[in-house]
Write a protein that binds this DNA or RNA. Sequence first.
DNA 1: GCAAAAGTGTTCAAAATACACCCATGC
DNA 2: GCATGGGTGTATTTTGAACACTTTTGC
Lengths: 243, 243
Amino acid sequence: MSTNKLWPYNADNIHPGFSIDCVILSFHKGKIKVLLRKFELEDYWALLGGFMFNHENAEQAAYRILEFHTGAKHIFLKQFHLFSDLNRTNIEKNKDYVDRNKNQENDGKWLIRRFISMGYYALIKYNDVTLSMAPDETLKWYDIHKLPLLQSDHENIIKTALATIRSMFPVIPIGYELLPEKFTMTELRKVYEIILEKTFDRRNFQRKILSEGHVIQLEETKEGKTYHPPILYTFAPLDKEIY
Amino acid sequence: MSTNKLWPYNADNIHPGFSIDCVILSFHKGKIKVLLRKFELEDYWALLGGFMFNHENAEQAAYRILEFHTGAKHIFLKQFHLFSDLNRTNIEKNKDYVDRNKNQENDGKWLIRRFISMGYYALIKYNDVTLSMAPDETLKWYDIHKLPLLQSDHENIIKTALATIRSMFPVIPIGYELLPEKFTMTELRKVYEIILEKTFDRRNFQRKILSEGHVIQLEETKEGKTYHPPILYTFAPLDKEIY
DNA sequence: GCAAAAGTGTTCAAAATACACCCATGC
DNA sequence: GCATGGGTGTATTTTGAACACTTTTGC
């Protein structure tokens, strides 16, 4: 695949007027982060996205985009909303983009039209990601509470993704997907607190989580803190789960 | 609008390769029903669907389709899933359909391609509907547990809609949308039981519903049954609701 | 010595569940 | 007279919520 993002897509190999945007979330140092991209010469950040080839369905396209940039496979990925407002596509901005990237083989005219976009959210362990950047782009994890200036409706897409995850709680195995194999009870609680936008009593939270049986206590403690190291926990094997 | 369903849509006025399918649900005589359509000369039923004009977004298109066929406005309508599998579009069937309906102004070639479809579910009061049928089509309410032979992946779309509604319970005001203004506690319980696929203890159900405060008891009883007429209930005004 | 992080139990209130009998009518 | 549908209350269990003190170390 070329480093020019226009390259893999052209008028003949993609489904017309349809794009995919991925809200890729992870947990790192007590914060939930979203992966964003900025192209050179542009002054706003954007969700990782792309188009659906004629030979794949939307899920496959979303997985492809995700794996290409994060190197991770078997990512937890769900569609959550189709964004189709007329003013979400900024045709002028697309024209500027095409002007900068067009070439003989691909005049980019297919991009000068209204696009509807399927939103996907992905939950991924921070350490499973190896960012893969083309020379003309920068990828960066942003705290979901400290977002930079975003392209078109992408801030709304992120907010909608978070609202969806919140509303699907506890059906979505959010801790399981976001935390590393071994984690402390405080880390798990932080994930819950950030997503649900509320705080939990430490003791009640721990009792409830352990009573559900999906989380089991290990006999290890977290290294690095020499004074009163917290106990580590892990998720029970999936075949014992309700998920 | 013409009676020919191909008429309103053509290659220039719709968003390409994109359709909308509506799972329209209502409650009647103790059963949850879905509204289906059958065209003359075809041997399968289908969800009510259509395409998105270039001047509208997907929600507007779904509302337009819904209102056109049911005569009802302000319908509760939510998108729930994008169906994009490669084999969901039966190109040959579309060709047959085009052959039967094409004319000079509209050759129907725009229909001979892969379509992705956004699924919407609608909840509507049975008595609010006045079915509006073109001469070449039949509309009919089917018990969701007794579906006829359905076009392409439409059975899957219906099942996915019901699973979505179930998983969103109790966020979706399902009783409020499906029941008439005045209803009995047994009718409300039936709606819950069918959607959630479980039974509830009559007494506990009633206590719980009334304790939530969204349903209030009227001083009327249901007519027609002369012996021990059930008490009627209604939903509290929306501004007191959590919805 | 004090702020920060983590370990640990009990009590009370609220909610969910289980369960049985009576009444009026149609047939 | 019996089957059907509908009205009503209590006791038990389970779950959720509130709440405080101790330990160890870094600073």
